[in-house]
Amino acid sequence: MEQLIEILSPHFLLKNTLYASLLVGLVCPQVGIFFMLRRMVLLGIALPQVSNAGIAFAFLLHSIGWHFLPHMESEKTMALAGSIVFTLITIFTLSVLERKGKGFTENRIGFTYALAGAASILFVSWNPFGQSEVLSLLKGEILSVPDAYLWSMVAIYGVIFVVLIGFHRNFILVSYDVDMATTIGKRVILWDVLLYLIIGVVISFGVMTVGALVIFGFLLIPAIAARMVTRGIFLFCIVSSVIGVVAAFLGFYVSYRFDLPTGPTDVALLCIILSLLFLGKILIKTKKNSIIGN
């Protein structure tokens, strides 16, 4: 209880980390529902890996003295730029190939994952300086979120959240029934591009903050869990974010209380929530069936 009060205090030392976790828990599931509904779960694994490769590549360039912009000193800004560029190029290339129906989706995503994984390791191994620093960034630095980074995260994730809520119907309709969307005058390509842009930015920023594993967890597990227990798309979206926020808060509390790494604790909690909901659903179904049987 003491720790809980300490965490909720506005003077808490790691409050930025808690706020960043809650933001990830709130916004990522709203993006993740589209991964699940569009059956792009594998892409949810591959894209954080691509984002990693972008970060490692940017660090490599930075350490050999090449900057994206003149006088750009902040390696974190450069890493973020690398992550966004790599992720967006990949997601747009994959979506164009998907629309053109070239080859099999699973093959393309598998290839992307393997290539990005290998490239990340090679970029890190070629980096003459600070391999451990790069590796810690690739794992996610959830325990050290500076004020400036938190505020930029609030701004970017805030805008994305508002856009996803405000244009929810358009995103859902173009995902569910492209032909229907076209016949009622929706610009399908525009909404697809906007959605991919959002996915790219959320993943890039999230991987930099909490790491690839945590982002994958928060993108998909809340959506899968909410899908099992909700009826109706509106409720599904709300419950996804509620699960994300609850897991982020509990994960932070448990990790602080028992001195565990925050990211993996968050993901483990998400898995426990998913398992409990699954078991609860089976129990309710069994009970209903036995009542009908009697």
Binding site: M36, L37, R39, R169, I172, L173, Y176, D177, M180, R227, T230, R231, G232, I233, F234, F236
Partner: peptide, 14 residues
């Protein structure tokens, strides 16, 4: 796709 958890009312409201 039936993965979408729409109610009948939500489908019509589209």
């Amino acid at each position: 796709d039936e993965i979408y958890p729409f109610t009948a009312g939500e489908v019509v409201s589209m």
